[in-house]
Structures are given as structure tokens and as C-alpha cells.
Nucleic acid binder design. Structure first.
Lengths: 349, 349
DNA sequence: GTGAAAGCGCTAACAT
DNA sequence: ATGTTAGCGCTTTCAC
């Protein structure tokens, strides 16, 4: 592998001149010199050793993205959009699966940090930031995506989230407006601020209509161990079956995300219940598939592209110190997309 | 940030001794010295600068994974399993979206290489390897996942794929056995070896039964530009509508992957056609959702976990030079999972 | 058993 | 306008 010295020799200049060419410091040399260097680079097929560059400069145009699981299309889509936004700004993205495990999240963050990545986007995961506070002290810049937590102020440099509470409230209002009075909530373990917010929102919407959310209708995957890979469809399927088997079952269910909703479709069918005839379902996220499944899913849309761009932009601004006092915390508006999985409850329920 | 020198000073030893401790070269020092060093490390909260380590040693326990799009759950699941397998072997994974664009694929590979990543898994993408051949000359080790191509011998160090041709043949045989005679193939642009193999397999199965695959029933997203983000469900939905609107429509359709199949569900419903009553659908991949949608999807399963482990293992073996002449090219067996989306054709078709 | 010293490839003062 | 020089933090001979 050709090094900067080889290029320098070939062009008959010094290494620093080559470095200057490489780093766009024109004006510090004659056009003719520049041309010679460029030609030498071309001929030798030289590429700078990025490792050495980073090592030396301490900076590297890479950010990290920690997601619960790329196997969920919502996070896959986020990764996709984050990558696109970062690429546009000349940054690369390292994607890591933390599996909703604080330990693993901290481990990845540490790895990233000691690989020279200073900025990391943490997406929905544990409720606190305690486990990464020490890394912040060591220079890690953290952006929170759809996540709030205790001690966040000291740890988080910028954050972007959808208003989860509002989103779920919209879902709840829609259902209440349709005439539902027994509404369930279907989720995996509620260990993230976004999940907690969604539950709260539903409760608030019901309260406003003088209804109480029956704790027996809040299913949170309790008692299921090692759900790592079955997160989503499988849990949704199991959960709704339990919910519908209660003495006084719900006539509508809000799910914590679209994957649970799709699982709920399957679970309801397992019991011979029709959607929305026997039970209405509202999802959250609005993944591509939500419009495709049958019946098309009523769901709360997160403006994903906007959120991805905002978090990447904010993070990079902080990293580059060009923050200029812009507000670093944005809350995106969710939107209820009414499709075919919701309807008034059956008479007599 | 504490450096190795700080530790050395604190422990009253030299930097090289600390390095030896760090790199597990015990036996080269007294237990007592080792203990002192360890304690100093602990006290200072020292972590080696991974960048400097890599820079110096030229080695870094990181592999790259280039996928068409993490937004497709199949690739998301692959990324997940690859990461798991790599982690178990002490490696990290950088995931990149190439968007099925050879240019972008080459760009990422180059970035990876100059960041010190020597081993990269390329998953299904362009038909040839020409665009990365020059990188191989510069030291890149490439593993091909579900991908064959021209010039592969010289470029690819190891490969893992499912037998796509066989998989599609199983699908075709199943359909033929059910009595179908007009079978369509629904795909996006066929620019990958895996897609080409699937089409061939279907054709072969039909040929064996004395049937010809009508070119008019092979839909490949022709004429659609900028389909980047709509890959999958959207194309499937559009495609099947066109297929079912032909003069002599198919009674069964094999789709290139499960996302297309789910799109096909929606498209068929758009036209009021029922599955499998009016048209049978077979998918490919067997993503989690395949068992969840309604009707549950008959599909060709790829043994994903096995394939992920095999490619990571083979790649790392090559990287570490412990290949020991083991066969570096494995072909995994696909399996037809018959569920509810296939049935005999209607009488009179 | 432990330390000294030489770099890895690049950048950035500082000279010229 | 260009070259010289001194490291960045670590690993790794090679002495002692």
C-alpha cells in the first residue's frame, strides 16, 4: 500500500504538501504543484490510510447508531434514513443492535468511543442513562432518539422524539370516539420511556372521557423470558389471545408498535375473532407494511425521515461545535392514520 | 484520557510492560508486577485507544456487512444474526446499505478497507464482482452471501448461499403438483445472481412438467425508476395487479421474496381476487412475518442463522489464516414451508 | 523479567 | 509556496 511518502517522492514534493493537497488547503501551493501531486496520487492508486488519519486527528467522520433490533422494520427503516442523512453530511454510520439490554448498550458505546467515534445516537432503550454516564465524562456525545430518561439533562447533548404520549392519546381518542369503553394496551416489557409514554397517553385519553384503563387489560409480556428474537409479532400474537380470553375482554386494543399489531391480527384470527368486527386494533409507527396488511392498519405515524435528519443534524452540529445555540431538543408530531382496522364496537358489548 | 504511559508511570514500570499485560503476554513478567499494572489500570480508568492499537497493529477485529437494505426485514434479520455470530467470535460488525447500487457498494467497501476493515461480507447485490476487484488487489477479503457472479473465483475468498435454483424449483414443483399450469414470477429488477437463480429454478420445475414459463408472466418491475425505497411490498402490489390483468392471467405466482409476496396479497385484494382461491402465492425467505400474515404464507425458507454463522466463520478463518483448507464455499439447503397461501387452481382455469 | 527505542502514516506547527 | 520536524498511543524487536 502506497503511503503519503511514496506520493511525495513520486511528485517530488514533501509529505506535508501532499497532506495539504489532500485536505483541500489549496492556495498554499501553486496550481502546478497541486496538479503534480494529484497525478502522482492517481498513478499510484493511493488512498489515505483512514486509520492513521483518525488516529492523528482524533476525529473521524463516523457516528454510531444503537437500536434495539434491526430485525424490526421500524428500526431498519430508521437505520436506513439515518444513514442517508449522515451520508449527505459526509459521515458514516455504525449500526449496533443492543437488544434492549443496558449492558450491551453500554458495551457497544464503549467500543465505539474507544474506536474514535464520539457521537452516538441511542434509540429507544432503557429508561435511564446511568449506564453510559461515565462514558459521557470520557467525551462521548449522546443523542437520544425517541427516548427520555432520568438524568438525561447531564448526559444527553441533543434529543429527538415523537410525542409518544400525544400519539397514544390520538389513538385513544379515536377509539373512544368510535364508542369503545374497554380498551386494552398490548406491549412487551415497558422498560423504555417511549413505551411508558404511550401507555400514559392511552390512559389520559380514556380518563378525559371518564373511562378508566383496566390494569387487567394492560398486557406487557409479563412472565416471558428470553423474548429477544420473538419481540414483536410473536408477543403480539400471544398477548392478544390472553387479552381476548379475559372475563370481560376489550373491544379495542392499542399496540405498542406495528409489529405487535400484526401479531395481534394473527392472534385474533387464532381465536376466530375478526378485525375490526370483534376487536379494533391500533398500531404505532406506520411501517411500510401497515398499509399493506389486511385489514389495512390504523396506526400512529412517526415522521421518521424528519426525525432521522433532525437527530443526525443535531448530533453533528454538537460534534463540530457549530451548535450556535440552536434548540437541541425536538419533539416531532405524531399523526393518526385511520385505515381499516378500527370500527365501532359491536352492539351489546 | 489516560494513556499507556500514565499507567506505566503509576505502576512504576515501562510502557511495554503495560502493553504486555494488556495483550495477555503473562509469563513474561512476575505476577506481582502484573498485579500492580492491573491496579493502576483500574485506578486510572484506563482503556486502550483502540484507534492507536489498530493503527499500529494493522489488525482490527471488525468485519463489514454490506446489504441491499436493512429496511427489508430479511436483511435486518441477517444483520442481526451476523452480528451475533461475530460477537461470539470477538468481532464487531459494520453494517452498510448499498441500495443495490454497485457504485455505492464499491464506495462502502473502499471506506471500510481504508478504515482498516479487511473482511467484508457482500450480500446479494450486483451480478459481477468487477467493481470491487481492484480492492481485493489491495487486500480486501470478500465473503459472498447468497451471491454468485462472474469473476467470482478470483475475487471471493469464501461464499455461502442458499441453493436459489433448488428453492424456486421446490416452489414450482409444489405449484405444478397442485395442478397449476400458468405460473407467474414476480420480482424487482433481476440484477442479482440470487434472483436470476430463482427465476431459473421456477422455469426448470415447469419444464420438467412439460410446461413453459410464459415471458409475459415474468414481472420484473420494468419501467419503474427510483424504486429504491419502495422495493418490496409496493412493487409486489403493483406487479401482481399487472400480472392478474393480463389476457390469460396466472393462477399462481412465485415471488422473489416475502416482501413482494405481502405486497402481492394487497394487490390481489385491490382487484378483489382471493388468495389462494383465485391465485396462489409462494414467497421466498420465510421472514418472521410470513407465518403471521393471513393467509399464512407458503414460502421457501432460507436457513438464515446457519448461513450467517457459516459466512462469519469462514470469513474470519480466512482473515486469521486458520483456514486449514476447509471448504470455503457452502451451499445451504432451502426448505419449502407449505402454509395457506397455495391451493389447487379453480376449476376451468 | 523488564526497559529503551524505533516506528506505523499522517497532520500541523514552525521554519525557510 | 514548500519543507522540516515533532509527535499522536501503541506494539514490538532487541538489549540489558
Amino acid at each position: 500500500m502506497a503511503s503519503i511518502l511514496d506520493v511525495a517522492r513520486a511528485a517530488g514534493v514533501s509529505a506535508s504538501t501532499v497532506s495539504n493537497v489532500l485536505n483541500g488547503r489549496h492556495g498554499r501551493m501553486q496550481a502546478e504543484t497541486r496538479a503534480r501531486v494529484l497525478q502522482a496520487i492517481e498513478e499510484l492508486g493511493y488512498t489515505p490510510n483512514a486509520l492513521a488519519q483518525q488516529f492523528k486527528s482524533g476525529r473521524n467522520r463516523t457516528i454510531g447508531l444503537i437500536v434495539p433490533s434491526v430485525a424490526n422494520p421500524f428500526w431498519g427503516a430508521l437505520a436506513h434514513k439515518v444513514e442517508r442523512a449522515a451520508t449527505a453530511l459526509g459521515y458514516k454510520v455504525l449500526i449496533c443492535n443492543a437488544e434492549r439490554d443496558p449492558q450491551q448498550e453500554a458495551r457497544y458505546a464503549e467500543t465505539l468511543l474507544s474506536s474514535g467515534v464520539r457521537g452516538v445516537i441511542f434509540s429507544s432503550s432503557p429508561l435511564t442513562f446511568d449506564h453510559i454516564a461515565h462514558l459521557v465524562r470520557r467525551g462521548l456525545v449522546v443523542a437520544a432518539f425517541d427516548r427520555r430518561g432520568q438524568g438525561a439533562e447531564e448526559v444527553v447533548a441533543c434529543s429527538v422524539s415523537v410525542d409518544n404520549e400525544l400519539g397514544a392519546r390520538l389513538a385513544g381518542q379515536h377509539l373512544v370516539g368510535l364508542g369503545h369503553r374497554r380498551i386494552g394496551f398490548l406491549s412487551g416489557p415497558i422498560r423504555t420511556s417511549s413505551r411508558a409514554g404511550r401507555l400514559d397517553g392511552l390512559r389520559a385519553a380514556m380518563a378525559k372521557a371518564g373511562l378508566a384503563l383496566d390494569p387487567a387489560l394492560v398486557w406487557q409480556g409479563a412472565g416471558i423470558g428470553g423474548y429477544g428474537d420473538t419481540e414483536g409479532p410473536e408477543l403480539g400474537r400471544i398477548g392478544i389471545r390472553e387479552l381476548l380470553s379475559r372475563d370481560d375482554p376489550p373491544t379495542a386494543v392499542v399496540t405498542v408498535n406495528d409489529m405487535y399489531a400484526m401479531g395481534a391480527y394473527a392472534g385474533a384470527r387464532d381465536l376466530g375473532a375478526s378485525i375490526p368486527g370483534d376487536v379494533s386494533i391500533v398500531g404505532f409507527d406506520d411501517v411500510d407494511l401497515a398499509a399493506v396488511v389486511h385489514p389495512a392498519l390504523t396506526t400512529v405515524r412517526q415522521p421518521l425521515a424528519v426525525m432521522a435528519e433532525a437527530s443526525v443534524g443535531a448530533l453533528i452540529r454538537v460534534l463540530e461545535g457549530t451548535d450556535a445555540g440552536q434548540e437541541a431538543h425536538v419533539s416531532a408530531m405524531p399523526q393518526l392514520i385511520v385505515r381499516a382496522s378500527t370500527a365501532p364496537p359491536k352492539q351489546g358489548s
